[in-house]
Design a protein around this nucleic acid. Sequence first.
DNA 1: CTTCGTTCCTGGAAGC
DNA 2: TGCTTCCAGGAACGAA
Length: 273
Amino acid sequence: MPEMPEVEQVRKTLTPHIKGKIITNVEIFLDRLIQHPTPEAFIKGLIGKTIEDVGRKGKYLVLKTADNQKLIVHLRMTGALIAQDSDMPAPKYAKIKFTLSDNITMWFTDIRTFGTLYLVTDNDTYIEGYETLGPEPLSAGFNVEYLTPLAAKSRKPIKTFILDQKIIAGLGNIYADECLALAKILPMRLANTLNDAEITELCKDINIVIAQGIKNRGTTFRDYKDGEGNKGDNQNHLLVYSRAGKPCKGCGTTLVQTKIGGRGSVYCPICQK
DNA sequence: CTTCGTTCCTGGAAGC
DNA sequence: TGCTTCCAGGAACGAA
């Protein structure tokens, strides 16, 4: 499930294969994934363009294809962008084929087909989730001064609060559980009950957990792969996620699984307060 | 206004 | 063994 570290790893691994390449053809095998404009206009708008830059904003990949045009991709649950030689067979679950110059093909694959793609030209559409993103972990705008007043007026569980992309861009279910475990805060605590010391610790630990995820090239549980089709390594470094019933790495207590905001959540009932 | 539940979708695992 | 049921969750949406 691509969260910020996974999307960043995709960006990094994709860049050397596609940057500077010309898009010579586009084939769409599932129209529904194209959110804007029409599939026909999407194809027409991309053919002949050069991929000038491969960027990222939160969990969105942003491919610049002209001064006034960008291809925005959200992988959601099981989407992937993979670059490979054009003479290689199509990967499984291929949904969109971007034929590039220099014998490279970039495939968009997706098992559950929740992924979304937008071709935005001259800001001709408004992408709600993209435009309202909060600051990212590890960025200057993400700090205690920013987070404290927002938490103070939120009555959501702290886990749900930090999963809100308008508050923090890039956290998903795995890293949210990990951040709260490291900060020793129970995920069901309401955001406005955290004291200053706890917010400070959480802020610091969100940065630590995300930096570790990036360093370990992302977390692969089931389907996530980077731009070259490789898995990440961070699943071998997790404190709580997917470890329900196993001993806490801190105190040995059996980790507990529950549901918060409809999402599976794992925590240590002793270490986390 | 905020918060909560539902929905989209498929594959894999668990249960009987 | 083979079938059915449940679960995974990002984010939009409608309901409370």
